[in-house]
């Protein structure tokens, strides 16, 4: 390993033509794109106006949330699918020597422990607020989920444990919970004879809130799982041993 590094350092001393060439290439590409943008035309279709006109039918008043969870909700469904898939792929890698998220107990100062205990409830409240406010101003499931995930990661970094391992199926259910609820709503609308994810009139607000709330839980846990890997590692190993 060290030898490798030394070899690399020796190599880097000489003048290299490759980076220069690459820089020129990237520069030319950028200039091409930049020049082409000079000829910006007026948009023939103005989707912003269409969104504004349909906003009162969407069940929320924040146009971005309306786009994410009503007009283009199918995109969001697939995107949550990507998240679940990523979590699943990370589980399938079953890396053992991950960067430790379980630091030495001695190195965690009492200030950190105390501060985290103070911060966690605040962050969870902020997450809930972001989720709730998403229907009228910027916010929503992803923002809320990432704030809660940050809170959980802080807890893990300060030596606390998440009580998720115990029934071994609990984590699997929670990870996929949001996606499953979203899928069931999608299937429900189809079974009711409507289009895919076409909410029944009058129900869109509450359905969007339910979907967002469940998504928040799952997104937070998926992000924690994807970043730490350890939460899952333990359960998976135990499950394998049990079988």
């Amino acid at each position: 390993m060290e030898k490798q590094i030394r070899v690399n350092q020796e190599k880097q001393k000489g003048f290299k033509i490759k980076p220069l060439f690459l820089a020129l290439l990237c520069l030319t590409m950028g200039v091409c794109i930049g020049l082409s943008l000079q000829t910006t035309q007026v948009q023939p279709v103005d989707l912003a106006v269409i969104v504004q006109n349909e906003l009162h039918n969407s069940g929320v008043t924040n146009p971005v949330t309306a786009v994410l969870l009503n007009f283009r909700s199918y995109d969001t469904l697939l995107e949550v699918g990507v998240l679940v898939l990523a979590a699943f792929s990370v589980i399938s890698l079953r890396t053992v020597q991950l960067p430790r998220l379980e630091p030495d107990k001695d190195h965690i100062g009492s200030v950190q422990k105390c501060l985290v205990l103070l911060l966690t409830p605040v962050m969870i409240v902020i997450g809930g607020y972001l989720l709730w406010v998403g229907s009228e101003s910027p916010g929503g499931a992803f923002q809320a989920g990432s704030v809660i995930a940050a809170a959980l990661l802080l807890l893990l970094l300060s030596g606390y444990q998440l009580p998720l391992q115990h029934p071994k199926w609990l984590l699997r259910i929670l990870l996929t919970f949001g996606f499953c609820v979203f899928l069931s709503v999608a299937m429900g609308t189809v079974l009711m004879g409507r289009s895919l994810i076409e909410y029944p009139s009058g129900w869109s607000g509450i359905l969007i809130l339910i979907i967002e709330a469940t998504l928040t839980i799952s997104i937070a846990l998926i992000l924690v799982a994807v970043v730490s890997g350890r939460v899952i590692e333990n359960t998976e190993c135990r499950r394998q041993n049990a079988e």
Partner: peptide, 15 residues
Amino acid sequence: NLDPIPLALVITGIV
């Protein structure tokens, strides 16, 4: 008025 579609696309892209 901001066009909400690109903003939604950005959120999706980030995830």
